[in-house]
Nucleic acid binder design. Structure first.
Lengths: 144, 144
DNA sequence: GTGTTTGCAAAGTGTTTGCAATTTA
DNA sequence: TAAATTGCAAACACTTTGCAAACAC
């Protein structure tokens, strides 16, 4: 069994291309994380989630590297940070404009497409400022 | 019916009444904090802000008590927590429905009246959940 | 080879907690 | 007096950082 097929479009190749596309070296740890994060399903992950996922996939990555990598991916524009509560930083694999729904009981964060919310009126901004973005968070309580 | 018997209505008295109204003992530390927090101007404070403000007003309160008290006030409904970034918990003296504007450069949080934002459409919620609230945060960048 | 990345442990930040002393009702 | 509150320091959870070894180009 000599080699990985060089079939184009497999996850390994596309992660590698993704990383190189933003100027990051495709190291083993980054490829493992990217392969999991960018598998086509939008995710909201904390460092602990990513750490656990890496461990489960038998590619153990130190927690420090997880943090570093998530931050590097964010700076590179591959992830976006979502602040929901004080305790954790969530990283969202969906970097396009959209909103969030947060289940306060289950602590579960899900996406809301931008089109599902219409902001019909916004206040004028203080002078000297430009709008960076508008975050809408629907907080829900799930009945137990 | 009882009417306002004392016209004095000074800050100390009203803070005391405020605390007793929600079943909290009006201790020196709580009165000092409440007198500053509920002076009529809406505020967004962190524990450090409150600590510094207390020190400046010569009523030194330990940081642990500041944290405890802010949390107790929040539970009592006198304050509301606002999550803006991972690093700090902001407590808002305005507990009625409204939104926020956050200057990412100055790290300054200000209120937006609920009426200044119109949410013309919201998605339907997952079944088994009820809307607890909708938070809208306008993030702005101030030019330097 | 040379510069980058990793991983460990240590440090840092913001918040909470255990508990004796103090204060309130 | 009994119960609640305070303040210190220690504990805490999460995140970042310093640096030697490992790795990518």
């Amino acid at each position: 069994m000599e080699s990985q097929k060089k079939k184009s479009g497999n996850k390994y190749d596309s992660s590698s291309a993704l990383l190189q596309g933003v100027g990051l070296r495709p190291t083993k740890q980054r490829l493992a994380l990217a392969g999991w994060l960018f598998d086509g399903c939008d995710k909201h992950v904390t460092a602990e989630h990513a750490y656990a996922a890496a461990a489960k996939r038998r590619s153990s990555i130190s927690l420090a590297t997880i943090y570093n990598t998530l931050n590097i991916f964010t700076t590179a524009g591959l992830l976006r940070q979502v602040v929901i509560d004080g305790g954790h930083i969530y990283f969202d694999t969906n970097t396009s404009a959209h909103h969030h729904l947060f289940d306060e009981k289950k602590r579960l964060l899900t996406d809301i497409p931008a089109s599902a919310v219409r902001l019909a009126r916004l206040p004028k901004l203080p002078s000297g400022t430009t709008l960076s973005r508008v975050d809408v968070v629907l907080r829900v309580q799930s009945r137990s």
